[in-house]
Simulated assay, not measured.
Amino acid sequence: MEEGILMESSQLIAIISRLDAMIKNENQEIQTRRFEKDGKEKGIVSFDPETQTFVLEELPDKQKFEFDNIDLAAIEVYDLLND
């Protein structure tokens, strides 16, 4: 790597760590995280510990997508933030 060039930290790792924190939360309530880009809210992710599923609500069109896999949920959030 050339000196002076800094590698940007992975946006995908940051997304996965936020989703993973929802899974590891001890209480059995639905967890919610908001995802923004440039100060604009792009989506809301909810995790239901009872069903072990993530629901991504894309804003502003309010489309909802359900995932039972953290990787698929993270990729969809990543795509939403980089659209």
Rank of each mutant, 00 (worst) to 15 (best):
M1Y: 11
M1D: 04
E2D: 11
E3L: 14
G4K: 08
I5N: 01
I5C: 01
I5T: 04
I5R: 02
L6I: 14
S9F: 15
I13H: 07
I15P: 01
I15M: 02
I16V: 14
A21C: 09
A21T: 05
M22F: 08
I23R: 11
K24I: 06
N25A: 15
N25V: 13
E26W: 13
N27V: 13
E29H: 15
I30V: 15
I30F: 05
Q31M: 12
T32H: 11
R34I: 07
F35N: 05
E36Q: 11
K37C: 11
K40I: 15
E41G: 06
E41L: 14
K42A: 01
K42T: 00
K42Y: 01
K42P: 02
K42W: 00
G43I: 04
V45S: 02
V45A: 08
F47C: 08
D48Y: 05
E50R: 12
T51H: 12
T51Q: 13
Q52V: 01
T53K: 15
F54W: 14
V55I: 14
V55R: 09
V55H: 04
V55W: 01
L56K: 03
L56Y: 05
L56C: 02
E58I: 15
L59E: 12
L59A: 11
D61Q: 15
K62Q: 13
Q63F: 08
K64C: 09
K64M: 08
F65W: 04
F65Q: 07
E66Y: 07
E66F: 06
F67V: 00
F67K: 00
F67H: 01
D68W: 06
D68C: 10
I70V: 12
I70T: 06
D71L: 05
D71F: 09
L72H: 03
A73K: 03
I75P: 00
I75Y: 10
E76N: 13
Y78A: 04
Y78R: 09
D79Y: 14
L80E: 08
L80A: 10
L81R: 07
N82G: 02
N82C: 02
N82I: 00
